[in-house]
Amino acid sequence: MSNDYQQERLRLGKELRSLQADQVVIAHRIGEIEERLTILNEIDMASQESACHADSCTTGLWPEEAEAIRASDKLVTRESPLEDKYELFIKLFSGRPDVHAMRWRSGEAYSPDCANLWKDAICCKRKDVRGEVKCSECKHRVYAPLDLALFKAHINTTDEGRKTVLGAYPLNAEDNCKFIVADFDGKLKKTKTNKARATEEVDEDASQRAKTIAAAFRTTCLDAGVPISVEISRSGKGYHVWLFFSDWVPGGKARRLFTALWTKTMDESPGLDFSVYDRFIPCQDTVSNSGLDGGIGNLVALPFQGEVGRFGFTVFLDAEFRPYHDQWE
């Protein structure tokens, strides 16, 4: 009789341990489901707010503002006057209004443009005053807003003087934005190691992976009712996925939306290589404590840059990832 009890105790102990293991698995699964439901709710709420005309040049705008643009004018095409193109450009790519970024002629870096740049006895970059202070600490630094002349230089396809390449800072002083961008980098470098030394070389396959991931993210967004637009980068190897808002929205809210969509993309395409994902721009929810260039945050290079646009770069792409025939229409 005693032996029977011992056997039953062992059996019940084994069942208990099995149930405890199942409990851990079930609790983990419940947590995953709750996380996914939160993501789906975020997407549903945001997609309702950003519903719009996805096939027009007003992609990403709310319906009422899209109608306002048409009523004001002006169907903008590549034959339209420069002023009409500038008006539409500012509506769509409106970042912080009091400052814009300029790409350095000597490399790939950008910095805030200054109204006192290269002015005699003022600009810290000049030889007569160089070394006194950094640009970010210069008392003569005056941010310069984007204007029609700069826009004209940016889209200019001829080689006149310095090649103007503009960037925008998405977050304004109140930490709101009118667009968000997902950046997929097709210029990844891989480390090649030998006995002598490790070297870095461009990963030639990264561009195709960036295209594949951008396409997957595009599909997730459109399936969720979030109307995005895809731009090919300046290098021609990466892609930017843009979402435009009709009004200023909190940067944190825009980032949560893209984070939810990105998580959904990864969940639905587990076999893809997501290493080409670089970042969302804006990169932070707030600039009040960022310390980046005095609290203006990260920048994004603006599309339609004339120098490389003539080769099919910094332009928007259709569903087949081919440049639209008329980028302005």
Rank of each mutant, 00 (worst) to 15 (best):
R29I: 12
R29Q: 14
I30P: 02
I30D: 12
I33T: 10
E34W: 06
E34M: 07
E34Q: 10
E35Q: 15
T38S: 08
I39E: 14
L40G: 05
L40N: 09
N41F: 02
N41S: 13
I43F: 00
I43C: 00
I43A: 00
M45D: 15
M45L: 14
A46G: 05
S47Y: 02
Q48G: 06
E49K: 04
E49Y: 01
A51S: 11
A51E: 14
C52S: 14
C52Y: 11
H53C: 10
H53W: 14
D55K: 02
D55T: 10
C57D: 13
T58A: 03
T58I: 11
T58P: 01
T59H: 01
L61P: 00
L61S: 00
W62I: 12
W62Y: 12
A66M: 04
A68V: 08
A68G: 05
I69Y: 13
I69P: 01
D73H: 15
L75V: 15
V76D: 11
T77D: 11
R78A: 13
S80L: 08
L82R: 09
E83H: 12
E83P: 03
K85G: 08
K85H: 12
Y86Q: 10
Y86E: 13
Y86C: 09
Y86F: 14
L88Y: 10
I90E: 15
K91R: 14
K91S: 14
S94V: 06
R96N: 03
R96V: 04
D98H: 00
D98M: 00
D98E: 03
V99C: 00
H100T: 03
M102P: 01
R103E: 06
R103M: 01
R103P: 00
W104Q: 07
S106T: 12
G107L: 01
Y110Q: 02
C114W: 06
C114R: 03
A115E: 14
A115F: 11
N116I: 06
L117W: 14
A121H: 08
A121N: 13
A121E: 15
I122A: 03
I122H: 06
I122P: 02
C124S: 08
K125Q: 14
R126S: 09
D128Y: 05
G131D: 06
G131S: 02
C135E: 09
S136K: 08
C138T: 02
C138I: 03
K139R: 05
K139D: 12
K139V: 09
H140F: 07
Y143A: 06
Y143T: 05
Y143F: 05
A144S: 08
F151W: 07
K152F: 13
A153G: 04
H154M: 03
T158I: 11
D159V: 07
D159I: 10
D159S: 05
E160H: 06
E160T: 12
K163Q: 15
K163M: 13
K163C: 12
V165G: 02
V165C: 08
V165P: 01
L166M: 07
P170S: 11
P170C: 05
P170R: 04
P170I: 07
N172C: 03
N172K: 02
